[in-house]
Amino acid sequence: MRRSKILYVPFWATYVFLYLPIVVLVVMSFNSGKSAYTYEGFSLKWYGELAADERVQTGVVNTLIVAAGSTAIATVLGTLLAVGLVRHTRSKALDALALMPAVLPDLVLAIGLLLFYGLIQMTLGLYSVMLSHALFSMAFVAAVVRTRLVGADSSLEEASRDLGAGPVSTFVRITLPQLTPGIVAGALLAFTLSLDEFVIAFFTIGNAEPTLPIVIYSMIRFGVTPKINALAAILLLVSFTAVIAGQRLTKIGESRAQD
């Protein structure tokens, strides 16, 4: 079959549109000059300045605390949610409701959470951001684990019961090992989502020391410098690694399940 060359144009145009800004961002982070727009020569000085910036440092620490905490909560709750949805209910409505936070606009979620925290008179801080992130990450974890659970053979669980194991023992020894790749993939996804989340964090952090995305936002207000490029490049590296690792793990799990 003859393939039309014309169709390659939008194909490559899409890729250029998608990745050119990212490539420019990474290249400019090595700029020796002060401008974020004209490249003057190679240098690592912006990375050095970044490391020396205290606001960035606290931002990174806060972001890691929030990401780690929300990932832990979301992974546990999301997994349990998925098991409940697949094994213990046939309700399509509950299914849709559980996965809702993943598609709800961030802004809606942010305003809602802010009002809710106000209503129960909770003082805002890092932990309120953590809880908020856990809320929507949970939906993503549940979605990933759910797919795996649907593909898993439920007769394994029945066999375990038949051999004398109670429900808890069956869950820990049979169900969980089957789900591990899905759970890890979900956790990595939750971690990356929390890492660069801005809107919800901005609304629910109160007067606490800000997370990294908020730090970047306030830095940009005084103009874009290559320092921000350097920071973005590092974030990119971390996110990419997590996503690729997550995909790898899911694939390994799938090929194992097919054996």
Partner: peptide
Amino acid sequence: NRRPISLMFQSYALFP
């Protein structure tokens, strides 16, 4: 799990 009965599944249901 409290019945003195074993079931051998059609798919065997071996723990992979």
